[in-house]
Design a protein around this nucleic acid. Structure first.
Length: 210
DNA sequence: ATCCCGAGGG
DNA sequence: CCCTCTGGAT
């Protein structure tokens, strides 16, 4: 995809949705971090359903430690990978209290040192809580970038680096959310809705297929 | 049978 | 590089 096509792609997505935001429901920084940790191999709808009854009384890592591992594991058991997530979440909360005064740190190194937090989760937190121009590459962003030809790569890190080079600076801050929403609602994995896609004429796959 | 806002360990 | 963890939706 040419730089001009890339520019057009984001102009259209930005025009259609000027203020894209996560569809995860959260109120405190810790809740965002926790919700992103829970989102692995799960839909955000499922995460919101699991966290809704919990979050009114679960606003800080101290609250999670007070709730305890067994109760938290039961509360999130409808999510994929729930046992590993519950264990990571409690270890993460403990570490936040011990090393970060119960607050969510704002550097990649500190975030990725937390149990259950890898590059993708750190990128989301840095973007949403701290306004960094990071692009978290999840399954949706990976698929949309490769399908359209916007940024191709065989690993999430390769796609992330290609995106950081391809996306024009004015769009970097929100590129992650525009691409993820496009992937979730239009450029779906099984049956992409090319007929209603705003960027089909710019897309390598859309030009050929359907 | 495949996919969902992945991470840790071997 | 690979494997495992995991249930719900489609």
């Amino acid at each position: 995809m040419t730089p001009d096509q890339c520019q057009q792609l984001f102009e259209r997505l930005a025009h259609a949705n000027p203020h894209p935001a996560t569809e995860l429901v959260w109120h405190t920084p810790f809740q965002l971090l926790l919700a992103v940790l829970l989102s692995a191999q799960s839909t955000d709808v499922g995460v919101n359903r699991a966290t809704a009854p919990l979050f009114p009384t679960l606003q800080t890592p101290q609250d999670l430690l007070a709730l305890g591992l067994a109760a938290f594991e039961q509360a999130i058991r409808t999510l994929g990978l729930y046992r590993a997530k519950a264990r990571h979440a409690l270890e993460m909360a403990k570490l936040l209290v011990e090393r970060h005064e119960g607050r969510v740190p704002g550097t990649r190194g500190e975030l990725e040192a937390l149990p259950g937090v890898g590059r993708k989760t750190a990128n989301v937190v840095l973007n949403i809580l701290y306004g960094h121009p990071t692009i978290a590459v999840d399954t949706h962003v990976f698929r949309v970038a490769n399908r359209t030809g916007l940024a191709c790569g065989t690993t999430p890190l390769a796609v992330e680096q290609a995106l950081l080079r391809a996306v024009p600076a004015p769009f970097l801050q929100h590129a992650h959310h525009w691409l993820i929403l496009q992937g979730r609602h239009v450029c779906q994995a099984r049956a992409p809705r090319c007929a209603v896609c705003l960027i089909q004429d710019l897309c390598d796959t859309g030009k050929i297929h359907v």
